[in-house]
Write a protein that binds this DNA or RNA. Structure first.
Lengths: 69, 69
DNA sequence: TATATAAGTGCACTATAATGCACTTTATCT
DNA sequence: AGATAAAGTGCATTATAGTGCACTTATATA
C-alpha cells in the first residue's frame, strides 16, 4: 500500500527539517500552492511537482503498476 | 539514465498497441492534449497524467533520487 | 502508387492551476 | 500562560492547461 503523493512530500520535507516556507522559497513554488498541495487540494502540474521534488532530492517516475512495494 | 516521461508513455502505449486516439478515449483525456504531451509540449497536471497512467497500467511515483536504474 | 490510418500543428476558447494577501488555527517554544 | 513560528483557509486575479476544430504531415497497407 502506498502513501499519497502529498503525504510523501510532507514526510520528506519534515525529514529534511524544512518548513513549508523553506520548501516554497527553495523550490520557487508559491507558498499558497505548496500549502494547498500538502493538504491534498488541487491538482499540481508536473512542473510544480518537479520543482518541489528537486529540492527534496526526489524524482517523479512513471512505472508499471505492481502489487505492493 | 532515464527516459523522459513522455517517451515512457509513448513507448508503453505502443507496447500495448494502442493509437493515440485509443488512449485518449480510454483515458478520457482529449486527443489534442495527449498529442501535445507525447511530443513533449505542455505541462500536464497530475490528474491528466494519472488518467493516462491508469490505462497504461502504470502509476506515478515520487521517489528519492538515485543514481541510475 | 493510391488510400487509409495514425501522428503532429495552429489557433481560439474555457476551465482551472498558480499566486498574493489577509486572516485563523495549530504547534512549539520560553 | 503568553509569545513565536508553522500550518491551514478564503478569495480575487493572472497565467496557463485542457479542449475542439480544421488542417498538414508521416506511416502503414491494399
Amino acid at each position: 500500500m502506498h502513501q499519497k503523493l502529498e503525504d510523501t512530500i510532507k514526510a520528506r520535507r519534515k525529514a529534511l527539517r524544512l518548513s513549508q516556507e523553506d520548501l516554497a522559497s527553495l523550490s520557487g513554488v508559491a507558498l499558497r500552492t505548496l500549502k494547498a498541495l500538502e493538504v491534498g487540494e488541487g491538482n499540481p502540474s508536473l512542473r510544480t511537482l518537479r520543482k518541489i521534488a528537486e529540492v527534496l532530492g526526489m524524482e517523479i517516475r512513471l512505472e508499471v503498476k505492481r502489487l505492493d512495494t
